[in-house]
Simulated scan of single mutants.
Amino acid sequence: MSEDRPDPATEAFVAHRNLLFTVAYEMLGSAADAEDVLQETWLRWAGVDLGIVQDQRAYLVRITTRQALTRLRTLGRRKESYVGQWLPEPLLTAPDVADDVELAESVSMAMLLVLETLTPTERAVFVLREVFDLDYDEIAEAVDKTPAAVRQIAHRARAHVAARRPRGVVSQAETRGVLDAFQRAVETGDLQSLFDLLAPDVVAMGDGGGVKQALPQPVVGADKVARVLSAGWSRFAAEASFEPTQVNGYPALILRLNGELDTVMALRIDDGLITGLYSVRNPAKLSRMDRETTLSR
């Protein structure tokens, strides 16, 4: 073996690293926690006898899933004491994520919030089956259940998600068009145009992590959301600017105050109207917005 070539264990880990990060991120909604899970996965993988491993990808996914499940249960307790509303950590994603429609939908802020309503095991089973297309036997090993039990869990999780997921896959062009119109309406203070873009049951959420001011509770309804947005913009208009970007596979907006990153705003769009508006201000959750994160299946 060449001296400058990494050992087989390192090669395999590096080859599947983006996949493993994506699995962990979809289960946790946090890039920081996903990176911790990858560290733990590597430590366990480094001690494995590769001679007994038939499928390295499946073996690595199994380790990552188990570590993510342990972390997810810990996170659940941590979220109970989180100040204000908790939103997933936004990721600046490369254009190729948007090209994979299923992957983009699975990592969207809206879908990650839906996944938050599942139990840890349901979330793991759903992600591994619906997003990464693992067979039931592989998933059973990853979550320490029988294949029959995994089938039941998958069915239950699928029905739960189907009742809450976006009503249809929205094209990038449609999302960008609504986003452009939303930006114009906010910047010009056109309350009527803003109202016309919002679904009657639109929900606005904000995550400041107790560090930055944010909505303490979800704001529901087009009239209330439009007024909150209008009032917020008028307060900061002199120092604020919007910048279109790509977050979690979909077009989104970055709000800068005096040139500094302040807020990432992601939208959920159904039938041409904004049904969800997610604003992340917690500085600890914006650390990945200075570089693209590569996600893969």
Rank of each mutant, 00 (worst) to 15 (best):
186 V>A: 02
156 R>Y: 05
173 A>D: 14
163 A>F: 03
167 R>K: 11
148 A>P: 01
167 R>D: 04
182 F>E: 05
163 A>W: 00
186 V>W: 02
177 G>N: 11
169 V>F: 08
156 R>V: 10
157 A>T: 00
181 A>S: 15
174 E>G: 01
179 L>F: 11
177 G>Q: 06
149 A>C: 01
174 E>M: 08
178 V>H: 06
188 T>G: 10
160 H>Y: 02
154 A>Y: 12
183 Q>W: 05
181 A>W: 13
156 R>M: 05
164 R>S: 09
147 P>R: 07
159 A>R: 10
159 A>F: 03
147 P>H: 06
168 G>Q: 15
178 V>T: 14
164 R>F: 03
148 A>I: 09
155 H>E: 14
165 R>L: 07
184 R>S: 10
168 G>W: 05
165 R>Y: 02
148 A>N: 08
176 R>A: 15
156 R>A: 13
180 D>L: 14
160 H>A: 05
179 L>P: 07
185 A>T: 13
161 V>Y: 03
173 A>P: 00
167 R>C: 01
175 T>E: 13
177 G>I: 01
187 E>W: 04
164 R>E: 10
150 V>F: 00
165 R>G: 04
170 V>P: 01
159 A>Q: 11
188 T>K: 09
152 Q>F: 03
168 G>T: 10
167 R>N: 03
174 E>H: 05
174 E>R: 08
185 A>W: 15
166 P>L: 06
184 R>A: 12
185 A>K: 10
160 H>L: 03
149 A>P: 00
184 R>H: 11
158 R>D: 04
184 R>K: 13
156 R>E: 15
164 R>V: 00
150 V>K: 00
149 A>M: 09
162 A>S: 14
171 S>A: 10
166 P>Y: 05
183 Q>M: 13
160 H>N: 03
155 H>K: 11
155 H>A: 13
183 Q>T: 12
186 V>M: 05
185 A>L: 14
187 E>Q: 12
165 R>W: 02
162 A>D: 15
175 T>I: 06
153 I>Y: 07
166 P>T: 08
151 R>T: 08
170 V>C: 09
166 P>W: 03
184 R>T: 12
147 P>A: 03
179 L>H: 09
172 Q>K: 11
181 A>V: 09
187 E>P: 02
184 R>V: 11
175 T>R: 14
172 Q>Y: 15
176 R>I: 02
156 R>I: 10
173 A>E: 14
168 G>V: 05
171 S>K: 05
150 V>G: 00
173 A>Q: 13
155 H>S: 10
147 P>N: 06
171 S>I: 03
169 V>A: 15
151 R>M: 11
174 E>V: 09
182 F>C: 07
159 A>L: 14
186 V>Q: 02
152 Q>N: 13
163 A>L: 15
179 L>I: 12
179 L>K: 12
187 E>A: 11
152 Q>G: 12
185 A>E: 12
147 P>S: 05
161 V>I: 08
167 R>M: 06
171 S>G: 13
166 P>E: 07
171 S>R: 07
172 Q>D: 14
159 A>W: 06
155 H>M: 08
180 D>Q: 13
165 R>K: 15
172 Q>T: 13
171 S>W: 02
157 A>E: 01
148 A>L: 09
151 R>Y: 07
175 T>F: 13
160 H>I: 00
170 V>R: 10
177 G>V: 01
